[in-house]
């Protein structure tokens, strides 16, 4: 298995190099001029030229690329102009924020969507099935910023249950010592229950927003895959042998229906991680999506390049994990590199 993982990682290297080159060229093709942007509103042409020289943007493209590649080899992703911080540090700080939010959102989503999908599949055409259809359609057709704002309006503004949408922690709490970067885990490790509660309270609404959005693909995929499995011979045999409906559905049918669900989960996770910009904006969440978008708006090259590269690396890792999971769920699946 180790050899297989190594082989897979080696195969990923050319695609990562491709990503590096393409993002470099794409960012340079953006219409904005970072020198003019950062020289400020009061800049003269000379001031802009000075800024451009300071940023090394007056060099020809190949020189710029060689410099970028050399920095990259040393693990230096460059410095963001909009935030003034090294990109690597920023990504290290922001990725856990996004990952924690996305994971929690996904867990909530799975907890609702999978049972719902199974129920809908066992009773097609019933009330549960229709409810499932309505819920998933509504969830996927409401834009996330809208769901987010509605949740903030109801639970924070009107009812006052939720804390202020001010990011990962209330202003008067200090962050737990960073070990994993996940506030929930870090505060538990530090045995600081008060911070844990505060962090969880901040997380609930944005996680719920993401969950509502990602219900649809998971529930629909569970339902479809369960329907196919439930109609197969071995389920009929199990039923004929007098096994309880629970054993038939959960132990036999669901386990066999899990493969496509896991694939969907992987896709939904990687999609959400990069695409939850709007949720991050609504909840002032210091995540990686809003970081990349802000950088893009300001034609700030380094963070955009760093973001795309990180996401590409994450996709490679995620696909690997999913493939390993396949093997564990269904021993018949053998991974070919």
């Amino acid at each position: 298995m180790l050899a297989m993982i190594l082989k897979r990682l080696l195969v990923a290297i050319p695609s990562l190099i491709g990503v590096v080159i393409i993002t470099f060229l794409l960012t340079r093709a953006l219409p904005g001029d970072p020198a003019a942007y950062f020289a400020g509103p009061a800049a003269t042409q000379e001031a802009i030229a000075q800024v451009r020289a300071k940023l090394g943007l007056d060099q020809p493209l190949p020189t710029q690329f060689m410099r970028y590649a050399a920095d990259l080899a040393r693990g230096d992703l460059g410095t963001s102009l909009t935030t003034g911080q090294p990109v690597a540090t920023e990504i290290r700080n922001r990725l856990p924020a996004s990952a924690e939010l996305t994971l929690l959102g996904l867990i909530i989503s799975v907890l609702i969507a999978v049972p719902l999908g199974i129920l809908a599949a066992t009773r097609p055409g019933s009330l549960v099935d229709h409810a499932c259809r309505v819920l998933t359609t509504a969830g996927v057709s409401l834009p996330v910023f809208f769901t987010g704002l509605i949740l903030v309006y109801v639970f924070y503004y009107l009812l006052g249950f939720a804390p202020a949408p001010l990011g990962r922690l209330d202003v008067f709490f200090s962050a737990p010592e960073a070990i994993t970067g996940f506030y929930l885990l870090d505060s538990l490790i530090a045995r600081d229950l008060e911070t844990f509660r505060a962090a969880l309270a901040q997380l609930l609404l944005p996680a719920l927003t993401l969950a509502i959005f990602s219900l649809a693909p998971i529930a629909r995929m569970t339902r479809a895959s369960m329907l196919a499995v439930l109609a197969s011979d071995f389920v009929r045999t199990a039923r004929a042998n007098g096994l309880t409906p629970f054993t038939v559905v959960v132990t036999y049918a669901f386990r066999n229906a899990m493969l496509p669900v896991v694939t969907t989960l992987g896709m939904v996770f990687s999609f959400l991680l990069g695409a939850n910009v709007l949720v991050e904006k609504v909840f002032a969440w210091p995540g990686i999506g809003s970081y990349a978008v802000e950088a893009l708006i300001a034609s700030d090259f380094a963070p955009v390049q760093g973001f795309v590269l990180t996401m590409a690396a994450l996709y490679v890792a995620l696909n690997l994990v999913i493939d390993i999971l396949y093997g564990l769920i269904d021993p018949r699946v053998r991974i070919e590199a």
């Binding site: 503004y157 949408p165 001010l166 002032a284």
Partner: peptide, 21 residues
Amino acid sequence: VIWRMVPSAGNRRALLERGDA
């Protein structure tokens, strides 16, 4: 002085009206 960045204008208004900011 704690200065927090809240990108959504709607939320800045909600924070003011709820008395949190």
